[in-house]
Simulated scan of single mutants.
Amino acid sequence: MYRLCTLLILFLLLGPGPAGAADVRVITENNPPLNFAGTGGPSGLATDLFLLMAGRAGLKVARKDIQVWPRARGYREIQEKSDVILYAMARTAAREKLFRWIGPIMPLHTSLFALKSRGIVIKDPVKGAWEYRYGTIRSSASEQELIRLGVPPHRLESVHDRTLNIRKLLLGHIDIMVANEPATFYSIRRMDLNPDDFEPVYRLMSSNLYYAASRDLDPALVLRLQSALDGLKADGTAARIIESYR
């Protein structure tokens, strides 16, 4: 009995050990420079920051443990399962109660882009959707925002990859590409295209990027991750990582 009591006291004092990759599934998408599949495994500023944050929080996740999935698949998984962290995600009013949030990582601005040569002017994104063909990223915050504003889903041409929308824009298959600004210009440069040929014609939304966690994920783990991220911001590490991807 004495030995049993001693073991119980030790367990209560020490608490559970660090969580490992088997306890949490980490999912991201191809959305450079935030997160993308690199030659050595998932990369990007949000990935590099997550790995440092996880290490400080005692979450044993290696780069190879992070899964790169299409956005719609990851978004569906985090809503259906209790052990998922998905990033990077815009924190919006529509999503607020669906997940636990760790962040913010950085601000995010999302715009409607057109070829500068077209001279397109958008004053109302809903009215514009009846005149122009919009290309969106499936299950993205910007696509959800357009639908919330009143754009019928059938007026949106939804794909899973931003570079595909850039090609469709160049070929005239769509008139407007809806995407976040830093990732769009990053992708344009990576495709050896001239950023000056593209222009944002309407700013759709501004938000902050976060790491999203399943609603049922251990709240103590979420709190440790948040504390670790706050520490990385306080000592300047987060800013250096973000700057390295500009």
Rank of each mutant, 00 (worst) to 15 (best):
C5L: 15
L8F: 10
F11D: 07
G15N: 07
P16Y: 07
A21E: 09
T39M: 09
G41H: 09
A46Y: 08
L49E: 01
A57G: 00
L59V: 12
L59F: 07
I66A: 05
P70R: 13
Q79V: 03
V84N: 01
K97M: 08
F99V: 02
H109D: 15
K127E: 14
W130P: 00
R133H: 11
G135L: 08
T136I: 13
R138C: 05
S142A: 14
Q144K: 13
E145A: 09
R148M: 09
L156W: 04
T163K: 09
L164D: 09
I174Q: 00
I174H: 00
I176W: 02
M177Y: 05
E181I: 09
T184F: 14
Y186H: 12
Y186C: 00
S187T: 11
M191G: 04
P195I: 09
D197N: 15
P200K: 09
V201N: 04
S207I: 07
Y211D: 07
R215G: 00
L217E: 03
P219M: 02
V222H: 02
D230G: 11
L232C: 11
A234H: 10
D235S: 08
G236I: 11
G236R: 11
I241T: 06
E243K: 14
S244K: 11
Y245F: 14
R246A: 10
